[in-house]
């Protein structure tokens, strides 16, 4: 119990991933959906860093860096699209974004 091993971090990462997944599924607000996506990416980063530490390998940390870079660019593009949508339709409700439905 007192010895923190790799499994502790993997379990924590899984819990956070589940929280983010619940957020992605139940949110109808596009901004909240972005928040949940950030949680997903962060939970994966924890497990990368933990594996990197417990195996003495730096590859995990490298992957975490690239995940952070991808998250940053996702936010920039996503928020830009969100602002354009809000200017055009005056809401950010996900249920209204069905114009591409066939």
């Amino acid at each position: 119990m007192m010895e923190i091993g790799l499994n502790h971090y993997l379990v924590l990462s899984t819990i956070l991933f589940a929280i983010g997944l619940v957020g992605v599924m139940r949110r109808k607000n596009l901004l909240m959906l972005f928040f949940a996506t950030e949680i997903l990416l962060n939970s994966v980063n924890i497990s990368f860093a933990a594996i990197s530490h417990y195996y003495g390998d730096l590859t995990g940390q490298m992957f975490a860096f690239f995940v952070i870079a991808i998250a940053a660019s996702e936010v920039a593009v996503g928020l830009g699209l969100l602002i354009v949508w809000h200017k055009k339709h005056n809401n950010i409700d996900l249920d209204n974004m069905s114009s591409m439905r066939g």
């Binding site: 971090y9 924590l12 901004l31 972005f34 928040f35 950030e38 962060n42 980063n45 924890i46 860093a49 933990a50 990197s52 530490h53 940390q61 975490a64 860096f65 952070i68 998250a71 940053a72 936010v75 920039a76 928020l79």
Partner: peptide, 27 residues
């Protein structure tokens, strides 16, 4: 904090700067 516990100091600093600084400010 987890990154600092795990000895990944640089990753922890990047996490604070990028997420709490850039991403949250952007949001």
């Amino acid at each position: 904090a987890f990154f600092f516990i795990l000895g990944a100091d640089f990753l922890g600093a990047v996490q604070i700067v990028v997420y709490s600084g850039a991403v949250m400010a952007l949001y």
